[in-house]
């Protein structure tokens, strides 16, 4: 099982801050598509993805137990 985290505008659009899905074996790109089917937010397209608190590229493969976070463009500072 994998935990998905949503932040900021994406959290509001999804109406939840975390959800569990089984995504092991998929690439980040595939994960984005799959999550988009459930939470069709435009912001998902412009978000970065972090796997286990590190930015992950489109080709990165999800493993069992990974935490996957969807990060809208940041605006700290």
């Amino acid at each position: 099982m994998n935990q998905l985290l949503f932040f900021a505008g994406l959290k509001e659009a999804a109406g939840t801050e975390n959800v569990n899905m089984d995504l092991a074996g998929l690439t980040v790109e595939e994960v984005k598509k799959k999550v988009f089917e459930v939470y069709p937010s435009e912001q998902l397209q412009t978000s970065m993805v972090a796997v286990n608190e590190e930015f992950a590229g489109q080709e990165h493969k999800i493993e069992e137990g990974d935490t996957i976070a969807f990060l809208p463009p940041v605006s700290g500072g």
């Binding site: 932040f7 900021a8 505008g9 972090a50 976070a69 809208p72 463009p73 940041v74 605006s75 700290g76």
Partner: peptide, 24 residues
């Protein structure tokens, strides 16, 4: 670098609304 890579988000609240700011 903070404005580039640190996952923190700002929401502005005005009299007539609010908005998440991104991509500064």
């Amino acid at each position: 670098r903070i404005k580039e890579i640190v996952p923190i988000w700002k929401k502005e609240h005005w009299e007539d609304g609010e908005e998440w700011i991104g991509n500064q």
